[in-house]
Structures are given as C-alpha cells and as structure tokens.
Amino acid sequence: MAGVGEAHLRTDSTPLLSVEGLVVEFPAGRQGVVHAVSGISFDVLEGETVGLVGESGCGKTSTGRAIMQAPRPTSGSVTLDGTDLASLDAKSLRRIRPDFQMILQDSISSLNPRRKVKDIVARGLRVWNRGSRDEIDAKVREVLDAVGLDPEVVGSRRPHQFSGGQCQRICIARALVLDPKLIVCDEPVSALDVSVQAQILNILRDMKERYGLTLLFISHDLGVVKNVSDRVIVMYLGKICEVGSPDVLYANPAHHYTELLIESIPHPDPSARSRDDLFGRTAVDPPSPIDPPSGCRFRTRCPAAQERCRDEEPQIREIGPGHFVACHFPVERSANAAAGPGGDIAGE
C-alpha cells in the first residue's frame, strides 16, 4: 500500500470537500519526524458519508484533525465548498468554522462540566449572534429534541448527570446547531456499548437525512464503518490502500491489508468460526511511522510482497467500477479477475 495517485478522485461532479496531497508530520525529538499522513488525496460529495478506517497509528485521526485545521497540515490543500482552508489566515478561518464541526470519541470530556446542557448547545449560536434569545432557545430545543433528548428535562442539567451515550447525543446536538456543511466524526461510538452504539448510529443516520449532512466518519471498527458509509477509504501508515463502496469492498477486498482486517473480525456466529491461526501472518507489529518502509508501506506484513513492492510505490488504480486499490499484486478473486495482477501498473 502505498497509495499515491488520484485515480479515485471524482471529476464528474464538484465535491463538497476535497483533500489533495495532505501531509501531516510531527517532530519526534532527536529521532526525526513522525510521518502521520503522507500525501493522501480524497473527496467527499455533498450528502455523502465517507468512512475512514484503519488500525491505530494509520493516520486517520490526523487526517480528520488536519481537515479541521487543528492543527494545520504540514502541506497539501483542504478545500471545503470552494474555499481552501489551509491558505486562510486565522481570522478568516475562524469565520467559516461554523461550516465544519467535529464530534469526538470521548464525549464526556469534550463537554464543559460546569455548564448546563442548554448553554453548551447554544454556545456557538451566541458566539455568532445567530438570532435573538428566543430564536436561539427555539433552535436549541429543536436540535436536542432531534437527537432524542427532552429539552425540558435535560436543558438545565450538567454533563456529569448523563451516561456516555447521552453525552454523545449532546455533542451531536452541539455540532448540528450551527447548520454545518460537514461534520467530521472521530470514533464517535467507540467508547459506547453495542446497544447504545446502535442508537447513536441510527441518530446520525436520521440527522443526515433531516439536515442534509455530509459526514467524514473515522473509525477502527469495520462493521460500524460499513453500516454508515457510502464510500470507504482504508488507510495504513499514512497512506490510502483501498477505496470503494462498502458492499464491494467488504465482499471483494483487493488490498491484502483490507483482507487481513476483514478476516481478523471475530464473527458472532460459532458455526463460522475459523480456528486457522492468523498467528504467523500477523505477529509482526506495524512498522514505525518515524521510519516507514520503502515502496509499499504494507510490504513488511504482506503475504504477497515481492521485490517490486520494496522498490516501487504502487499507484492507486481502478480495478472495478468505483473500486480502487494501491497494490502491485491485488488479492485475486474471480469477481475482479478482469483487472488481475498482471495488468497495467504504473499508469503514471
């Protein structure tokens, strides 16, 4: 995987969010630089949910934060609805912040413990002077009601009086209240129990319909990502491995990393249990992002790695309708045999 290239970008329509050549690096003291995100490009169409999935350290959170410009990326452009966020000065950036909001994993710690829920949700509206006191009150009621909280009951309470799932609802309400164009959701359900997780996923889906939202959904959980996404991007060590619609990508993973991820999921059905040890294949730790491998970054763990994977970074290329992979020797399956490994590679 290495994923350079832009074959997966959509040129036939204007995307709401377009990320090009995004690089995020952090200083790592004397050891050098952490290459968190190494030149990825992708786009999100209006009304679409794009899922970003990968293991910890793959750069998915850094990507989300770079889009939020918090902190700003090392290089590359982030264009939201025609405006390049990375080139804006601090003042102009602040002015368009209401357009892109974020929902974080740890909902309880992202709410101010000393404020009442109605004030937390109303905060953005007050900062931006969006309407009179009554109008703000009405809007706060509307969004709290939309996420399934009774504004009369919860409005005067403080965050510690709520469970994790309810706090996440408050965070969603807070993100919604400014009518954003884009919401970046960073692991919004990872800290929740499955029954509550299902409630939050359903709310996000309803809110998307009701408010016409566009979501970038970051998660390590492949099942969750499949459930919410229109398009899935798989990341590994700061690069894109594979892009596709969830139904195609999960049924026919073309990248060996995607295949490994899917095979690793324990299946809630004992008759499907595969006791064949993935032990030998996966016992290797991911390499350090301070000194990533040459060529394809997944080659150190890849069962199909060959010399070429070390020397040459694979380009993202289309192997089926709307299905893209950055691999010299993709997983062979009858379904996508048309674009077998022998085919073209360097479409550079």
Binding site: A198, K226, H267, P268
Partner: peptide
Amino acid sequence: EALLASIPRIDLPSHARLQAIGGR
C-alpha cells in the same frame, strides 16, 4: 436477541438500520 441484533455486522448490507435497544 436484542444484543445480537444491535451489532453492525460486516455480513449485513451497508446502511441496514440497526435494532437499537431502547432505554437504559
């Protein structure tokens, strides 16, 4: 049964509505 139905399984089609368990 409710616990099993609330899991977003990878063998379900995407956008399948999950059977959340209501209440707390």
